[in-house]
Amino acid sequence: MSLPTLPPELVDNIILYVAPADLVAVSHTCSSLCPVAQRLLYRHIAISPWSRNINVVATLAKRPDLAHFVRSFSITTAADPSLFSAFYRLLADALSGMTEVISLNLLVDSGASWILEKSGRNITYHRLEQFNCSFPLDFTVAEFLGKTPALLQLEVDSMPCVPSRPIPSLPATTIPRLAHFIGSARAARAIVPGRPLQSIHLNEGDLGEEDLASLAQANADVLVLGATASTPPVPLLESIARHLPHLAYLRIMTTYHFTQAPEVGFMDQVANALAALPDLTAFELSGMHWGSSKRGDDGSKRVWQSSPLGNTFNRSEDITTDSDIFLQY
């Protein structure tokens, strides 16, 4: 029995183990094997200057039947000055054909969000779960997000931008399943309220009371928070405890109190503030890792050590760094 005459599911399982270079040869073997090989060849695509495969964008733009096979697509071109608007038009066409994509990473010119315009008009990316981009949260990106009902993870507006640029409001029906967000504090104020966010990482902006009040409007318990701040750590931790009482992991980057030796009692004040977060198991303050232990099984509060972790501290209760919750960072 020849390979093309086997049941389709067996052919798929056999060709699944063929090396990418050999898949090209398989696609030219016969007409019945070509679609199977192409489906695997274009399933996962990572484009970068060092990979020398940027021509695949033109192929996908001209062949929407191949773009339909794409399940994960990643492109990095931000540092390549040789790319002109003609290339981005091809990229826009390619994206409009990836209607079955699950993971999409666009690390390109931050001013080229217009490549999403064609995709955001009459197309729904009903399977897209993860979207990372170098774009600000502008009206084009907001329209695109309205076409991603299954989105779980989002990174947007991570690059410093002009403060006067307006952030569009998002309808309540947009990205209703979003659980993980990475981006600026100003974008978080538009994205987090009313959505089931569990982990939030703010990599641009100064965390303050207004931001915390906005994050508290998530309709799920926020478990992970990473942010930068310039305010005194102790009052900030007290505000965090009021607004986000269910945090399990907290990372704060600040220069306050670290340009010189901390005041006497500073470590104890931080430890007391952390005690107001009953579910917190791991904390990092500007690179200093803290840990905790329970007094007993009577439900009493955790006791936080008032200095950076040492070799003698038992970290068995801490969140492990290889857990799913850390993969967002």
Rank of each mutant, 00 (worst) to 15 (best):
F84H: 15
F181M: 07
F326T: 11
P193W: 09
P160I: 05
V56E: 13
M1N: 04
T320F: 12
P35Y: 10
T174A: 14
W290V: 11
G120D: 01
S169N: 09
N13G: 04
V57Q: 09
V36H: 13
P235V: 03
D93L: 15
P245G: 02
A188T: 14
S158C: 13
L10S: 09
L106E: 00
F87R: 01
I45Y: 02
A150F: 07
Q153I: 02
S113F: 00
C133M: 04
I123R: 02
S184Y: 05
A86P: 01
A61S: 15
T228N: 11
P81G: 12
D279N: 14
N132T: 09
P8W: 11
L116A: 00
I325Y: 01
T59Q: 03
A248P: 00
R295H: 01
T312N: 13
A190Y: 09
L95N: 02
V36F: 14
P262R: 03
S184V: 07
I115S: 00
S300G: 15
D221F: 06
P171E: 15
G265M: 08
F144V: 05
L3W: 00
N272V: 05
F139L: 04
E100I: 00
P149R: 10
V234F: 09
G120V: 01
P7K: 08
P232M: 08
N55M: 04
H246A: 09
L41W: 11
A190P: 11
Q328N: 02
G205R: 10
L106F: 00
T228G: 14
Q217L: 15
K118A: 00
M159T: 13
F135W: 13
V224N: 05
W50P: 03
L244G: 03
R121D: 01
S184N: 08
P168M: 09
P308M: 08
Q217A: 14
P262W: 03
N55G: 07
A19Y: 11
A86Y: 03
L91H: 11
N132K: 11
V57W: 15
Q198H: 04
T173K: 14
L107S: 12
A142F: 02
A61R: 07
